[in-house]
Each structure stands twice: as C-alpha cells, then as structure tokens.
Design a protein around this nucleic acid. Structure first.
Lengths: 123, 123
DNA sequence: AGGGGCGGTTACCTCCTGGATACCGAGACC
DNA sequence: GGTCTCGGTATCCAGGAGGTAACCGCCCCT
C-alpha cells in the first residue's frame, strides 16, 4: 500500500457541512417524518398513525424543528374544516435521495450489523 | 394529484432497518472516524489530530461502539513498538458510499439550511 | 532508574432528548 | 348546551451522551 498521508489537523475545522450533518441529521424521528411526507402533505393526526409510539409533544417538537430548518412547511386551512397540513419543501424533498441511499445500505447490511453485535455480547 | 394512500400503521414496525438506522447512525463522532479511516489503518493518536476536540474518553467510546457494530477493527501490534491500529472492516468500508452521498447533500444545501434558520430567529 | 509517549481509564458533572401523563381551546356536530 | 375530534400545551422526570480533569500502566530510550 502506498504511504498514507497524515491526517490534517484542520480536516474537520469549523462548520464544515460534511463534518456536522451527515448521519446525525435531525432528531430521532426526523427521517421517518420526511418519509411519511414523500407522497404529499399529511395532517398531524395522519402522521400519528405510522408513528404510533411518538407522543404528540415529541411529534410537535420534531415538526417544529424540521420547519425551522426549512425542510417542512406547515399550513393551516381554516375552511371547510380546520386542518393543519405538513408538506415537504423542495429542500426537504431533495433530502429523500440521500435518505434512500442510507436506507438501502441499512437494509442490505442489517444482518451483518446484528451478527456483529451478537459475536460480542459484552454490552 | 392522485389520491394518496393513507399511511399504514405498521409502516415502521419493529426493527425495520429503514426505520432505525438512517441518519441517526452511531454517535456524534462515528461518521468522522469512518472518514478518517478511509485511506487505511490509523493509530489512536493519529485520530486525535483531526478530531482535536474529542477527548480520549469519548474517542475510545466511539471506537468501541464502532468495533461492537463490526464497522471497525482494532489490532494490537506488540512489536517492534507497541501500537494499536484501527481499520475499517469491509462492512465499515461499505458505509463510505452512503456517507458520501449524505456529505454531498449537506455541502450542496448548506446555504439553504443556514438561510432557513436565519429567517426564523425564534430559536 | 528516570522520563516520555502511547493508549487509554476513572470519577464527576451537565445538558438535552425523549417519554409519560394530563390538560386545553377552537370549531363542528347533535 | 354538551360533546367530539383535531391539534396541540404544560409539567415532570429519567437516561444517556458527551465534556472536564486527573490519573495510570506499559514499554522504550537514554
């Protein structure tokens, strides 16, 4: 193997996007919410169906954060019935691609991950 | 737009890979460590160079966790000098691809993310 | 035999996330 | 006017992630 370069001290300096974001994106439920919105706007109570174990407080928190980061939009419809719809913004939609790449990796290697854990039962 | 399907309650049931892993992978430093190991094995003190702000305790924690999950291997060389080398396993190496996809997304949309936060100064 | 680098460990503490539970206000409906 | 659903809030709390600081054993080198 060729001689490797030493790792530069400034490799991850500052707010480098590649150092902060990937694979630590959002909170626990953010990715799932984005996938729920893939097919179009959804209402609060619609989201609670697949995300059964998310309490309303936490769901609100997640949605607010996604809104703040410009990935999701929140629209209140007064008529005919009061309703709130959450939808992906273009930015949110652009995130579907890397999200799916990650999902595919996870699906492909899920067994290996489980195996590794079982081979080392120490926690 | 065509009528959307309602979201199924079992959409994220159980340990579905796509629900657990993507974008919440590992701890705070896991992704950075993996990128540091891309070019070959590295020693503990080598990793501390780019990851300046990681204390030894936390770095050890991260590495142990990556080892447990089968992404990184730890090898102790006794001779000629005592040294410990961390390297990517094939599984760890397979993670580089989705990781880079995520990095590219972050780099492309970094400005938009910052903009969104500034438009909504409420926290 | 003393010092220094390597590769950690230990104890302690803080903050944030996320969960449980209960409550609530505005409209629509009966 | 009472009640139902929708879309949340308010409060409290526990666990874990991650940071700080100090210490440590081993081996090599001189």
């Amino acid at each position: 193997m060729a001689q490797r370069q030493p790792l530069p001290p400034d490799m991850f300096d500052e707010l480098c996007p590649s150092s902060l974001l990937p694979f630590r994106f959002g909170d626990k439920w953010a990715a799932l919410i984005i996938r729920c919105l893939e097919d179009g706007p959804r209402r609060f109570s619609e989201l609670r169906v697949p995300l059964q174990r998310v309490t309303p407080k936490v769901l609100t928190q997640s949605l607010r954060r996604l809104e703040r980061n410009g990935l999701v939009s929140r629209t209140v419809h007064a008529a005919p019935k009061p309703a709130v719809e959450y939808a992906l913004t273009p930015l949110g939609r652009s995130m579907l691609e890397p999200l799916k790449t990650a999902c595919m990796w996870a699906a492909e290697h899920w067994d290996e991950l489980l195996d590794a854990r079982e081979q080392d039962p120490a926690l």
